[in-house]
Design a protein around this nucleic acid. Structure first.
Lengths: 212, 212
DNA sequence: TAAGAATGTGACACGCATGTCATGTGCCGG
DNA sequence: CCGGCACATGACATGCGTGTCACATTCTTA
């Protein structure tokens, strides 16, 4: 994590650094990102950088934590009225929140998505254990759905959570790719209809039927 | 594409180069791969490399084509008795072939998977258009299934092919990641049971029902 | 076999990024 | 007013990779 020095910085200077780092990591993986570019964009001298961070990985870890915090903020917003919802409605809300996050913070979502594709080794080096948080989220909801008798007992919950999680990231990526290329942001509602299409299939696929 | 000089090379020398390149690209993206390491591993002088290839991208393009050829070889093997199969059986075969390919050529599959995650811009630079070949494959099968009345007309075929394609790569990645970490190759049959679980959901989700 | 084309070879000049360090600047308690 | 501490700064030594080029070697082919 950054040195105390970094947190003592005047907020706008700190902000410029964070901004520059986000720009860099949105375009480059941690392997190809460059401190040289970051310090130039942030307008700080090279030496200062090493006063704040031990190196690139340190900065990366910090940025990832900033992103994770921001996303968690969004997700905890959901939890309030979550209990009232049917399992499939919960899933839909989860997807919606994910897309909304991507729409509101495209660069952050991009970095997060790239992070998820790094080797498990790097991921756990950056963020201790904690790696499979996303998948766990789905798992929890599905388990509850099973307990409530809303889900067909014949399906493999672990695998379905993997599947749902994968689709979640794939959808967000797809969304971000569109955003990236055309520069224009597709209507969120349009994307939600994709979510609905997918959930239609999944729901048909795993909901407990009367006959069983 | 490589210079003619490269193809005039004695086969074992060419093989060593290809081998070294595959090793390199299995561990590094095209952005972080290094000619220096490749020539060292292949045991050829640096100058020679530039005699065969115009640069790293040229070599990469060639390796990708080698991999694509190898995979196509596997897939065309399927086509023989494909017509006899039910749509969902076809899908299963497609997945099986994909996993089998990954099991037989892990490094190649790894490179292919990384390639698919490159920006669309790079992908189409490497391999003209042709990029969405994988998704098209699924689309064709699904369209046919729809025409045959095996698939519920309410589903969005384009989206489902995106979904199936995504799951295909995700599964292969998951498989390769396991392979990578533990060094041991999980039983293919075990993995096929995952495929079956997924297809169970999908089939329930999109198969046309009597009542409709 | 000798000339010329094709191919092999590795030293070299250059670019770009890294992490350090000697030095400069501003602030505070005594 | 001064010594000392925290922080700022950018030149520098180093490392690693690239693409090129002059020269060496090997293959034709007449």
């Amino acid at each position: 994590m950054p040195e105390q020095t970094f947190f003592n910085l005047p907020p706008e200077k700190r902000g410029k650094i964070v901004e520059a780092a986000i720009d860099e990591f949105a375009c480059h993986s941690i392997k190809t990102a460059s401190i040289a570019r970051i310090v130039e964009a942030a307008g700080i001298p090279r030496g200062s950088f090493y006063q704040y961070f031990t190196g690139l990985k340190d900065l990366y870890r910090y940025i990832i934590s900033v992103i994770a915090d921001k996303k968690m903020e969004k997700l905890t917003g959901l939890l309030a009225e979550f209990d009232k919802l049917d399992t499939f409605a919960k899933l839909r809300e989860l997807y919606r929140a994910g897309l909304e996050f991507a729409a509101e913070n495209p660069r952050m979502a991009l970095i997060g998505s790239h992070f998820m594709k790094e080797s498990e080794e790097l991921r756990s080096e950056i963020i201790g254990e904690y790696g499979e948080k996303g998948q766990e989220f789905f798992r929890g909801i599905l388990m509850q759905g099973l307990a409530r008798g809303e889900i067909d007992g014949a399906v493999d919950i672990d695998f379905i959570s993997f599947l749902m999680f994968t689709m979640n990231t794939a959808l967000a990526d797809y969304y971000l790719a569109r955003l990236d290329k055309d520069g224009f942001m597709p209507d969120l509602d349009q994307w939600l209809s994709l979510v609905d299409k997918m959930l239609y299939v999944v729901e048909n696929g795993i909901r407990k039927r009367e006959g069983k």
